[in-house]
Design a binder for these strands. Structure first.
Length: 397
DNA sequence: TCTGGGGTCCTAGGACCC
DNA sequence: TCTGGGGTCCTAGGACCC
């Protein structure tokens, strides 16, 4: 039997939060965004959108289109608090929730909604209660898979409710432009359009033709798309709390720089932020990554694998500095960033290490085969490999 | 038009081991 | 000495999303 999956998307979430602390903003063209160098629109009210303002647009450009717009620098702590209130509200309806971002989630409501006669009326009441108690507006998509629910919630805004049944997939998806397909972005869409694929219906025809060249073009994504577009694919709502795999911070300079010391001073602050955040979350990472963006918008990533995972500020800063020294070759740099990658919980790491700590030095050779076997079993696990630990011991660490 | 900052996942090539 | 092929790990880059 098909599941009943909801995708709930908060309408202009940041703007709505601002309206709650300043009701006079309601009905006004509001822009939430950076207004510094290279500042862009993070999100904006529907009134601003009427003028052609949209997310990702440079703020100065948005103001050209809509000179009356009110620009607000985000109050991110407020958004975070309201986001929590939202998820707690949804939990009253179903415990099977997957947070997709601060302002959207998937909910498995199979059990609850299969007993309900008028699903639309039920969800209307949900929306009204959310608005009355938390002050937030949302659009809801209802479908048998997560992908369809996501597509559905996008169809009517604000306060929309859209149901996509499997038998309605062709009718409801096919007319949509290819760029609206979740996972097809601004690189892939033009390539498909050049091949004559303008709508989701065109893509469905192409995918379902089973041509080998098409299969090859999409790679691993082929079978996922084929399921999605035909109304199948994942309906598993993943309740696992979000567990970051990397923690990073970056900043755009006031003006481009080629100067090692200047860029390094930015790295110092960023490394501190990364270290603090990792410590707060109890995470340590195996890799330190330096990100540089040139004035021509070329991104340079360089990373180093550490002997031992860490969240120590000095280590992160030093490794990032070494990477900077090696890779700064006179280019004009506009942004730099530091990321700690391949994170694990500090507590997990201690346990892993203690297993191997029990080996005595003179047992090394005798246990080599065993360790190789363990290595094989640990493949995929992002812990230190036994051979690395042996190497360390041999080197007298 | 001229492009922030936070992430995730996939791919491809090289090093290395057996 | 010069060689094949399978497998894994690591790194860099790119596409995408909010």
């Amino acid at each position: 039997m098909s599941k009943i999956i909801l995708h709930i998307d908060l309408n202009t979430f940041f703007v709505r939060c601002e309206e709650l602390i300043n009701p006079s903003l309601e009905g006004q063209p509001v822009i939430i965004g950076h207004s510094g160098r290279g500042g862009i629109v993070s999100t904006c009210s529907y009134e601003a959108r009427k003028y052609g303002v949209h997310s990702g647009q440079p703020t100065f450009k948005a103001l050209e289109l809509c000179p009356n717009a009110i620009v607000i620098h985000g109050h991110y702590e407020l958004y975070s608090r309201k986001s929590k209130e939202f998820f707690n509200f949804v939990k009253q309806y179903s415990k099977i929730i997957e947070k997709a971002s601060v302002d959207e989630c998937y909910v498995d409501m199979t059990e609850q909604l299969s007993k309900v006669k008028d699903v639309v009326a039920y969800l209307k009441e949900f929306q009204n209660k959310l608005l009355q108690t938390i002050g937030l507006k949302c659009s809801i998509g209802v479908a048998p898979t997560k992908f369809l629910a996501k597509m559905a919630s996008d169809m009517k805004k604000p306060m929309g409710i859209t149901i996509i049944r499997r038998r309605d997939v062709r009718k409801m998806l096919d007319p949509l432009p290819i760029s609206s397909f979740y996972g097809i972005g601004k690189k892939t869409a033009p390539r498909l359009e050049a091949m004559g694929v303008k709508t989701i219906g065109d893509l469905a025809k192409l995918i379902n033709s089973d041509e080998p060249s098409v299969k090859q073009a999409f790679g691993k994504f082929y079978y996922v798309i084929k399921d999605w577009i035909n109304g199948y694919g994942s309906d598993e709502v993943d309740v696992e709390p979000w567990d970051p795999k990397s923690i990073g911070h970056s900043t755009t300079f006031v003006s481009d720089s080629t100067d090692f010391d200047e860029i390094r001073s930015y790295l110092k602050d960023l490394a501190k932020e990364v270290s603090d955040e990792a410590k707060e979350k109890g995470k340590i990472g195996f890799n330190v990554q330096l990100v540089l963006k040139t004035n021509e918008f070329k991104t340079i990533n360089r990373s180093v694998k550490l002997q031992k995972p860490t969240n120590d500020f000095e280590t992160i800063y030093n490794e990032a500095s070494i990477l900077l020294e090696k890779n700064l070759n006179g280019q004009e740099i506009r942004l730099c960033g530091v990321t700690l990658q391949n994170l694990i919980y500090a507590s997990d790491y201690v346990e892993q290490l203690s297993i191997f700590d029990n080996y005595e030095d003179d047992e090394k050779n005798a246990t080599r085969d065993l360790i190789r076997e363990l290595n094989r079993k640990m493949k995929g696990a992002k812990f230190m490999r036994a051979s690395d630990i042996l190497k360390e011991k041999r080197n007298g660490h």
